[in-house]
Simulated scan of single mutants.
Amino acid sequence: MLLAIDAGNTNVVFAVHDGTEWRGRWRIATRADRTSDEYAVWLLTLMQHSGLKPSDVTRCVIGTVVPAALYNLRRLCRDWFGTEPLVARSILDWGFEIKVDQPQEVGADRLLNALAAHHHYRGPLVVIDFGTATTFDVVDEEGSYLGGVIAPGINLSIEALHRAAARLPRIGIGRPQSAIGRNTVSAMQSGIFWGYVGMVEGIVARIREEAETPKIKVIATGGLAPLLAEGTTQIERIDLDITLEGLRLLASRNPAPISAKDLL
């Protein structure tokens, strides 16, 4: 079985795929100082609840945008699952061209999203990921990665608004009943929700114009994707597993790294 690890700025998601389906998904808050043993105590307990053993895992693949977390995630794979993990990097075989100025600067999550989106939905398309940052990634008809857009994430914007304005409270995100807020909280919710809907529609329109492809598909992922999709017709499909699928597909395209036990 394959253990896929998606380490983002906010959460680390672990998932096990048995070759046919995902057998379990678990997430934990991202902390760069979390040790491999801490990960193991937590993860192995959850795997056991799903009827999985460490020996069931024969391969590991890691995608991370948090370099400081990589060391302990690697140690987890080596010490507790006896495998050398494949780490998602631009130098691997992705099956498509990365047509940007500095491919090594592109976040692994963005390339993984592009890989899975093209595999499942074909291009041309835009993948919007509502994560810590809100990213738009553009894939052409052949599956090549063309670049994209990075904007502040929704929760990041809410927190910045609260911290920077003395009288504005910290709010939860939700779809407001009307655009015109009748109090401070509803006015803030309207600004966040409709502001991001407007950003999605505006950026997608500009991408379509630049790419000269009016029929470009729009796929959304991230925890807030279902909520934001309620406010716009631009988002055609929601796929919350797209990054994990990208890890699975990347592992299938690239040979397993040689581990220390294989050299004995």
Rank of each mutant, 00 (worst) to 15 (best):
184 T>H: 07
122 R>Y: 09
149 V>K: 03
112 L>E: 00
218 V>M: 05
187 A>M: 08
102 Q>M: 10
119 H>W: 14
67 P>G: 08
30 T>Q: 09
129 D>I: 04
168 L>M: 10
170 R>P: 05
85 P>L: 04
192 I>K: 02
69 A>E: 01
264 L>G: 14
14 F>W: 11
198 G>K: 08
64 T>R: 04
218 V>T: 05
39 Y>V: 05
130 F>G: 01
93 D>Y: 12
200 V>D: 01
47 M>R: 04
196 Y>L: 05
121 Y>C: 05
16 V>E: 00
211 A>G: 10
160 A>I: 09
259 S>G: 15
207 I>N: 00
119 H>N: 15
46 L>Y: 15
23 R>N: 12
157 S>E: 05
1 M>K: 06
255 P>S: 11
37 D>M: 08
59 R>S: 11
107 G>W: 01
107 G>K: 02
255 P>Y: 07
120 H>C: 13
132 T>C: 13
78 R>P: 04
139 V>P: 02
64 T>K: 03
172 G>L: 09
95 G>L: 05
154 I>M: 06
158 I>R: 02
191 G>R: 01
222 G>T: 03
209 E>M: 12
23 R>A: 08
91 I>G: 09
58 T>H: 13
175 R>Y: 09
94 W>C: 01
243 T>L: 04
152 P>G: 07
142 E>M: 11
90 S>M: 08
11 N>L: 11
156 L>D: 06
15 A>W: 03
175 R>S: 10
224 L>Q: 03
10 T>K: 04
27 R>M: 13
234 Q>C: 09
95 G>N: 06
48 Q>K: 13
112 L>T: 00
258 I>R: 12
155 N>V: 10
125 L>C: 07
240 L>E: 15
162 H>Q: 11
132 T>N: 10
4 A>W: 01
93 D>H: 12
95 G>H: 03
66 V>G: 00
216 I>C: 07
154 I>T: 04
61 V>K: 01
218 V>P: 02
20 T>S: 15
19 G>W: 08
80 W>C: 10
122 R>E: 12
23 R>L: 15
83 T>Y: 06
150 I>W: 06
84 E>T: 08
158 I>M: 05
123 G>E: 02
143 G>I: 07
82 G>D: 06
165 A>K: 08
71 Y>V: 13
232 T>N: 07
71 Y>K: 14
75 R>Q: 15
72 N>C: 10
74 R>N: 12
188 M>D: 01
2 L>H: 00
169 P>E: 10
166 A>K: 11
160 A>Q: 08
